[in-house]
Amino acid sequence: MDFIRPDSGSITILGKDARADSTALKKLIGYVPAEPNLYANWTVDEHIQFVARVRGIDAAPAGRLKDDLELSGKPKIRHLSTGNQQKVAIVLGLMTAPKLLILDEPTRGLDPLLQAKFHALLREYHKDGGTVFLSSHNLAEVDELCTEVAVIKEGQIITASTLSNLKQKSLHNVRATFTGKVPDLVKLGATNLQLIGPTAHFQIRGDINRILQELARRPVRDLEITRASLEDMFMELYQ
């Protein structure tokens, strides 16, 4: 959004330089910040009218969004809860029918019902050809909404991939309970191993056939293998 000037490098969005063509780009971008940046003494409708006038667009689409999110136009921002303020920010970001929608923790402060409504709005927007760029610590939300992900650690992208690819790189959570001595699972490629009595909890990256074959040779009483969640993968990338 060109709020912070880069020390080096460049960003290209929709074929335009994010710094040099910042003003032209913002005509194509809708933005929803993590914390609503609204004027406390303005009403919801005053915000909508202002953004519509500055962008030179019709404010009518905001009416439908307000209805979808059950938001009244009359109250002043200072009288709204954080969740309702976030709804206003969502309306302002989406009302412009942008080509790209940049969302920074957009559902923070929304209750689960409204989160679901917002997710439905995003799916509809995406179906109509829009692109969503979502920055979030809510990995369940990322898992539900995103097709491509990038994980950033200390300012560097440490992995970038489609979500399905990332999942197919296969990190599996394994819980195995042995009737006899627990074998050396680390040798078999286990990571994050935790032993609780005869039960071993660990993770396996990559093909699971090898561990299955090894475990089949040992006295296993109980076995559970699940695909790791995005959160598990995130944690592994961060460690």
Binding site: M1, D2, F3, S22, T23, A24, K26, K27, I29, Y31, P33, E35, N37, L38, Y39, A40, H47, V51, V54, R55, L92
Partner: peptide, 14 residues
């Protein structure tokens, strides 16, 4: 300070 500048800077105005 009040973050309202964020609203203005997100609009297509230099």
């Amino acid at each position: 300070d009040a973050r309202t500048m964020g609203l203005l800077l997100s609009l297509p105005v230099s």
